[in-house]
Design a protein around this nucleic acid. Structure first.
Length: 704
RNA sequence: GGCAGCGUAGCUCAGUUGGUUAGAGCACCGGCUUCAUAAGCCGGGUGUCGCCGGUUCAAGUCCGGCCGCUGCUACCA
């Protein structure tokens, strides 16, 4: 089959050491792992490399908050990450860390290349300096009074009250959160990469190299490459958890500089451990690179991997990616993962309740290599795993292995009507789909083989042969041998997706699966082990337990067993639901109750009756109406309310509404909004319903 | 509003360079089977392929214009 042994270096994006792995992360790691396992099964030399992304301000702040050093924090998170990945059978060839000596070395080399090519420039940036702590202060480390609305205790970059944006130097009475002293304005030098000098190269690489999906290339052309590329600020002054820049003491490489270089460092570390050569993977010798480089990333970090990173590699004379595989985000039951809905699913929580193979298969069945978001519909997840893996695939072995325990496989492969040969021929198409990361297509083709195999068993009725007695024994052995061979063939095809299942299938019959080629020849005469459960069905209770645990972890009590809340489709309108005699549970299910609050919490919010005295369209606004409301007497407020399209200005004037009267003013594009009008709304834009007090209520009355 | 993407059976989707009566899985209904983890097999679809127009011998597939939805962004206080 395959002609040459390819050398394929594959990476997933480095997970940040500031949080745990969740099912969204796993879309990427499972996808990458399947790709790598497939390549290895085909006989290619593939390396799956990854690392923890450990540097940056967030880590530093978190470590301080936890009262421990950064390295202690990242070591603990590394353990947790590795345990999660292991649980999902993600098989890295090497898992490094951006906080390694190898990475420091590679950062230095790339840096020197940028210097040599004249791509580094410096520019002064005005920053506040803490004379007591002796450090420049990032925006987050400064608080002070807003220069615009005079609100105290605001961060250095923007005001939470009026929304004004400014620099820390603009703050009135600034205070350093590190020392509590008043910082002074100093000018600090930052280092920049003048990306514009690489513009021609980036145009060419993004549009013509074939490394990118056309949609991604188009996005880059439209958003960035159509105008001069801005300089990239790649240094941060101390305090910063990271690597100090060797020729610029006091400056540290920004985390997004050293993170992708972690791919190089991981390669070096793996090579050191295996006696291989880094240069053979990354160095460009003449026109033809010796290895293929594949990056798998989420669409949120496209910019870094398709502009900065190739520019860095190009400047350093290193090999460019053959392909950057960009995938979408994970949604759960059609919506973003949500802690309050209990659908923020951590890897660990999943593993407490369900089989990782089921998720690997589900993702495989939904991934087609595009950048579309992937929806984890929990009902479909259970149905698909149960029907395909348990009902079709495992069932093949489960229903026939027992008849071969004594005799083993038939000595000669029987006439199966061409079933094995057909599925063997399908191998080329399945491999092609794997290669293109269209795993969904591969799974469909494999399941068709399973369908044909089950139909065969049904037609041959081996259970009748078993009852018929000794004269049917040979025929029984033949039928069961066909069935088990088809089963093993499918196990080979599924091995990249379900490695544990593949091992167990091999234990049952035929030994370890080591090569894709094993799908091409039936086995004969081999012993058959005792069938034992290979994969268990997903029970609804397990999914409920998963969701309940996820809710607990987010600190929200489970309000009720989560029904399968299909997002409302166009069939029923809100109006119809109003008329229904019994109310649907859908709105509550769509937005479960918030965590319990105390009466003190509630009294912080001053809700008042108010009268709309004026209402007008804001022509340029899509959702907003400008309301003038009266709290009685001459106390009036201007409020922008997002109710355009649901209410006309004329219908509002004169009516009573409920407002949040002590809400901090908010600067909006069309003016300052001085409160919020209370309204009910469901998930999605199903409607907005203003609250009205009973008649007799007067403006200014408070809600108790 | 800007940018991008998507609109095919109740649901999730497949439809390769335009080419026979538009498909799969799930769900649902009927029948069969009982070896198997309440698994399996057979049968059952009058779908305006979002709408309108265009190109073509031929369009779900290409082009244009609308409508709707989603994501990012913006004004969701």
């Amino acid at each position: 089959m395959t002609d040459l042994v390819r050398r394929i270096l594959v990476t997933s994006a480095l997970p940040y050491a500031n949080g745990h792995i969740h099912l969204g992360h796993l879309v990427e790691y499972i996808q990458t792992d399947i790709f790598v396992r497939f390549q290895k099964l085909r006989g290619h030399q593939a390396l799956y490399l990854c690392a923890d992304d450990t540097h940056g301000t967030a880590i530093m702040i978190r470590a301080r908050a936890e009262g421990r050093g950064e390295r202690e924090l990242i070591a603990a998170m590394r353990e947790a990450h590795l345990a999660d990945f292991g649980g999902f059978q993600i098989d890295f060839d090497h898992y490094g860390s951006t906080d390694s000596e190898a990475n420091r070395t590679h950062c230095g080399e790339i840096w020197q290349s940028l210097r040599n090519r004249g791509l580094v420039t410096t520019r002064d940036v005005q920053q506040l300096y803490d004379t007591t702590a002796g450090v420049f202060l990032a925006d987050r480390f400064v608080r002070g009074t807003c220069p615009r609305c005079q609100t105290a205790d605001q961060y250095g970059d923007s005001c939470e009250q009026c929304g004004a944006a400014y620099t820390p130097a603009d703050l009135v009475d600034p205070v350093s959160t590190l020392s509590g002293t008043r910082p002074e304005v100093r000018s600090a030098e930052h280092l920049f990469v003048t990306l514009e000098q690489m513009h021609g190269f980036l145009n060419d690489w993004t549009q013509r190299s074939g490394a990118l999906d056309p949609r991604i290339a188009n996005y880059l052309a439209g958003h960035f490459l159509g105008e001069p590329l801005r300089d990239w600020d790649i240094s941060r002054p101390a305090p910063y958890f990271g690597f100090e820049i060797p020729d610029a003491p006091g400056h540290y490489w920004y985390v997004w500089f050293d993170a992708p270089i972690g791919y190089l460092a991981a390669t070096s570390e793996w090579c050191a451990a295996h006696g291989d050569s880094f240069d053979a993977w990354w160095r460009r010798d003449g026109a033809a690179p010796t290895a293929e480089i594949h990056h798998f990333i989420g669409k949120d970090i496209t910019y870094f991997h398709t502009l900065f990173w190739p520019a860095m590699l190009e400047a350093a004379g290193l090999a460019l990616p053959k392909r950057v595989h960009v995938h979408g985000f994970l949604t759960v039951n059609g919506q973003k993962m949500s802690k309050s809905r209990g659908t923020f699913l951590l890897a660990r929580t999943y593993l407490d309740h369900l089989d990782p193979g089921m998720l690997r298969y589900y993702y495989a069945a939904k991934l087609s290599g595009g950048i579309d978001d992937l929806d984890l519909n929990l009902e479909e997840f259970a149905a698909k795993g149960n029907a395909d893996l348990v009902g079709k695939v495992v069932n093949l072995a489960s229903r026939t292995a027992r008849w071969l325990e004594q005799t083993g496989l038939a000595a000669q492969y029987p006439d199966d009507g061409g079933l094995f040969a057909t599925a063997a021929a399908d191998g080329a198409a399945i491999a092609e789909a794997y290669e293109a990361c269209d795993f969904a297509r591969a799974m469909r083709t494999i399941m068709q083989a399973a369908d044909r195999a089950n139909a065969y068993v049904d037609a041959e009725q081996p259970w009748k042969l078993a009852k018929a007695g000794p004269e049917s024994a040979a025929k029984l052995q033949e039928v069961a041998s066909v069935s088990l061979n088809l089963f093993r063939q499918i196990a080979v095809y599924l091995a990249p997706v379900l490695p544990v299942f593949a091992v167990q299938a091999g234990e049952l019959v035929g030994g370890p699966i080591t090569s894709w080629n094993e799908s091409q020849r039936p086995l004969t005469g081999q012993p058959v082990g005792t069938f034992r459960s290979l994969m268990r069905r997903i029970e609804p209770a397990q999914i409920e337990a998963l969701l309940a645990d996820s809710l607990k972890l987010s600190g929200t009590p489970p309000t009720h067993p989560t029904p399968s809340s299909q997002p409302g489709t166009k069939g029923t309108t809100s109006m119809e639901q109003h008329a229904a005699p019994s109310d649907s549970g859908e709105p509550l299910a769509a937005e479960p109750l918030a965590p319990e609050c105390t009466i003190d919490d509630f009294t912080k919010i001053d809700l008042r009756v108010a009268r709309v005295v004026a209402a007008e369209e804001v022509p340029e606004a899509k959702k907003l109406l400008r309301l003038t409301i009266s709290l009685g007497g001459d106390a009036t407020r201007t409020v922008f309310a997002g109710i355009k399209g649901f209410h006309t200005p004329e219908s509002l004037v004169g009516r009573l509404v409920v407002v949040v009267a002590n809400l901090a003013p908010r600067q909006m594009k069309f003016g300052l909004s001085e409160g919020m009008v209370a309204a009910a709304s469901g998930a999605g834009a199903t409607g907005v319903y203003l609250l009205s007090p009973d008649s007799g209520a007067l403006p200014g009355m408070r809600l108790h």
